[in-house]
Design a protein around this nucleic acid. Structure first.
Lengths: 126, 126
DNA sequence: GGCTGATGGTTACCGTTCGTAAGTTGCCCC
DNA sequence: GGGGCAACTTACGAACGGTAACCATCAGCC
């Protein structure tokens, strides 16, 4: 029996719960935001600058989801101009190792994947 | 300096390449399909049965992307009724440990996340 | 007193993607 | 010859993501 059944099927819902969580965590931006907040608390604008390609809207939505799920804390200071700082919670920090494992895997296999993809395109698009 | 910069920012593209790969790997279904193929080769219908909630269309698309990226192999037997078997390649198998790490994290923190989410709803929707 | 700039967003719009449901092909069994 | 199985494929409406413009507030400056 695969370890998958131990970890993913452990609940009676046939993996539905874990799918919901993975769906929330594994979107395009969440892992990048969490990884960027590793070891430092950052303001909205700094996050926006440090994550290339993210829009303000997506950053707002991603941070709200993370805040709602208890992975980052949001601290607003009543100053002018306004200042809002985001930081990982304990739960959020615990996500760093598996997130880095996945990112490391991606780094290790970027070349393979891109080569395979190029070969596939050549095969199917004459 | 965080390890993130060592792993994610190592290339000059500001993390754009790794974002592309993560975007491809970290969608709703890919990790579940890969985890389900751990230790066993399966036919289309078996995969469909073992992954609750996936539609035929999404399974087809997910498998095509995985095949294109070289993570699964597709073997069609010219029989009647047709038989197509899917199995992980070496690259696909190497994704299992980080994928299980992430799934394990999700299992460990489902309770925290759901509690935080419930508390958030109560706070914002009186 | 009006203008500019910084900050942390929100809104409007639109194209792409996703989910549901139905159709297709080829052959076998009853 | 009607129904069923396997592996897809297509059609279509709903939901999501991206782009770009807009907003509110106040400090500092002319």
């Amino acid at each position: 029996m695969s370890q998958y059944e131990h970890t993913c099927m452990i609940r009676g819902d046939g993996g539905r719960t874990i799918r919901t969580i993975l769906d929330r965590i594994c979107d395009k931006w969440t892992l990048l935001v969490v990884a960027t907040l590793d070891q430092q608390r950052l303001r909205f604008t700094d996050l926006h600058r440090q994550i290339p390609g993210i829009s303000q809207r997506m950053l707002t939505l991603t941070l709200r989801n993370l805040e709602r799920d208890g992975l980052v804390s949001r601290t607003a200071y009543a100053e002018v101009p306004p200042r809002v700082e985001y930081a990982l919670t304990a739960t959020g920090r615990s996500l760093i190792p598996p997130a880095l494992a996945l990112a490391g895997w991606a780094i290790d296999h970027i070349a393979d994947i891109e080569a395979s993809r190029a070969a596939y395109e050549n095969r199917t698009a004459p």
